[in-house]
């Protein structure tokens, strides 16, 4: 019997400090057993349990993209017991990854559609995965217009800055980067919270438009009415939820919202689905 609690052993291959407060680092992992990489086949939007022997496990969205091979990447905020320990680990250290877990953004259904991607703060990880996936030459033609609104508190708090600048230069994706505020005179992008930027920059919705929203609860709360105003149907607003988890495979019972389990039935839900569950996330 395969043991779904058993992580694949991995080695830390690279650690990048993402933000100026040094609380966010991106870890690149390489599987110790190369065949495990194939067994870890994932889709953009899924998460995995990072497993540190002696400390425990944490559910983290996968930041690398299925089209990137040879490694997996996770961007981790330093917060609890496990993440603090992870932030102190070095390249070459051994730990585990268990997954991929949960569902993903509904890629098949999104083919041929225009997409509005809205991200805030460090919830941009699976969105990066998604953008890389869509921009891949093999996939780009499958999707219509792609608009991205991504906001952080300051320029120094934006994740994946080099990639953001690259995407800015492309003409097959419309980037709307914003910060809550900055005193940097060279800042040439938007200033303002995510919801008003969405209102100004995002396209009006029609039947072929979908929005994917990931961010802190407060951003989601104020973005939702804006999307409604722009005509996005609740079936077309796709969100990724978070809840405290342990097992990640729908067994331990703690991430439940109503009859849905965020870890297994989610983390990706449409707003229409979320409206049918108790607000316990």
């Amino acid at each position: 019997m395969e043991n779904p609690y058993l992580p694949y052993p991995v080695r830390i291959d690279e650690i990048i400090v993402e933000t100026e407060d040094r609380n966010l680092k991106t870890f690149t992992f390489v599987f110790l057993n190369p065949e495990d990489e194939e067994r870890f086949a994932y889709q953009a939007g899924q998460f995995a349990e990072l497993s540190i022997p002696g400390k425990g496990e944490i559910p983290i969205g996968i930041a690398s993209s299925p089209v990137e091979k040879g490694f997996v990447k996770f961007t981790v905020n330093k917060a609890g017991v496990v993440t603090q320990h992870l932030h102190n680990m070095k390249v070459g250290d051994i730990m585990g990854i268990r997954g991929p877990l949960g569902n993903w953004y509904p890629w098949e259904g999104l083919e041929g559609k225009d997409l509005l991607i809205i991200g805030g703060g460090f919830a941009f990880t699976t969105l990066r995965s998604s953008i890389i996936y869509m921009l891949d030459p093999a996939n780009r033609a499958k999707f219509g217009n792609i608009d991205v609104v991504y906001g952080a508190r300051t320029p120094g708090m934006l994740l994946y800055k080099e990639e953001l600048i690259e995407w800015e230069k492309r003409d097959d994706i419309n980037m709307h980067i914003t910060v809550d505020g900055t005193d940097d005179p060279d800042w040439k992008y938007n200033v303002g919270f995510v919801p008003p930027i969405v209102e100004q920059k995002a396209p009006q919705a029609d039947n072929g438009t979908y929005a994917i929203v990931c961010g802190p609860p407060i951003m989601i709360k104020f973005t939702q009415p804006v999307l409604e105003k722009l005509g996005y149907d609740h079936n077309h607003i796709i969100m990724s939820l978070e809840n405290r988890m342990k097992c990640g495979i729908g067994m331990c019972g703690r991430c439940g919202i109503g009859k849905e389990l965020v870890c297994k039935d989610g983390p990706v839900f449409t707003l229409a689905e979320i409206n049918k569950t108790p607000r316990e996330y």
Partner: peptide
């Protein structure tokens, strides 16, 4: 009722991952 918790415990260098009722 089946809900459970997963915890790591280490004694010196030897560790166990345990699960217990929650």
């Amino acid at each position: 009722c089946w809900c459970f918790d997963i915890q790591d415990e280490v004694f010196k260098q030897e560790g166990q991952r345990l699960r217990q009722w929650d």
